[in-house]
């Protein structure tokens, strides 16, 4: 299969053999794919320094087996300037896609959300809200987001001040006592917009999304947030 002029982003890359790179790409039409960039690390390569995350690219490749072989790699526009903590948020978003989005599964809507998220990170002061929105879109597009505005069993609308326990498969379930994994109804109700302003609610919303994401990870942990927490 030969593909030309497909736009995409590098999610991650690893040195491969002497001078090549193994890159994970997130592309408009083909979703996440794995590819080899031959010679991309050699001193004379025109691709040197281009196969970097946060650089919008136009790509071309041929593919026979599992991995594609890149034959075109051109920057389209500037590499996004993610400074400080925004850079770490960008790495977190990339890790989420690497871990949760299967290869070869086109996800054009998620691709748009990814671009919106990266762009927001270059300017937004409220990185947490940007992250929560991306998490919500990711789980929704992957089709694993339970309905959060109704009680799982009765299908009754949630009461904002009542307590519910998150069942990551089915959604909120009524409960009486606060415990790990329980949140007030209003936290579930604000998940799609990530509009929390109160610091306690922001933390609860973060924890709610974390539980939903961890459920998809089969017991493994995400490395970026772990590292981010360690430096405080």
């Amino acid at each position: 299969m030969r593909v030309t002029a497909c736009t995409g982003w590098v999610l991650h890359r690893r040195p491969w053999r002497e001078s090549s790179l193994l890159v994970e790409l997130f592309t408009t039409e083909h979703g996440r794919i794995g590819a080899v960039a031959r010679g991309a690390r050699s001193a004379r390569s025109a691709w040197r320094g281009l196969a970097e995350p946060f650089q919008p690219l136009e790509l071309g490749w041929v593919r026979r087996g599992e991995l594609a072989t890149l034959n075109a790699l051109e920057p389209v526009g500037q590499r996004l300037t993610l400074a400080g903590r925004s850079l770490w948020c960008g790495l977190y978003v990339n890790e989420l896609l690497m871990r949760l989005l299967p290869r070869d599964d086109p996800a054009p809507l998620l691709y748009d959300h990814y671009q919106v998220t990266l762009t927001a990170l270059t300017s937004s002061q409220d990185q947490a809200a940007v992250m929560r929105r991306f998490e919500w879109h990711l789980l929704t597009e992957l089709g694993v987001m339970p309905q959060l505005d109704r009680e799982a069993e009765s299908a009754q609308p949630l009461v904002p001040d009542q307590l519910y326990r998150l069942d990551p498969e089915a959604g909120p379930r009524s409960c009486d006592k606060p415990a790990a994994g329980t949140f007030p109804g209003r936290i579930f109700l604000m998940a799609d917009q990530a509009k929390a302003t109160d610091p306690v609610e922001r933390r609860q919303l973060r924890d709610l999304m974390r539980l939903l994401i961890e459920h998809q990870l089969d017991g493994t942990t995400l490395q970026t947030p772990k590292l981010f927490r360690s430096w405080k």
Binding site: H12, R14, L91, M98, Q223, T224, L227, S230
Partner: peptide
């Protein structure tokens, strides 16, 4: 270098 995706931490 730090690279969370490769599991390289502080």
């Amino acid at each position: 270098r730090l690279s969370p995706l490769d599991g390289i931490g502080p």
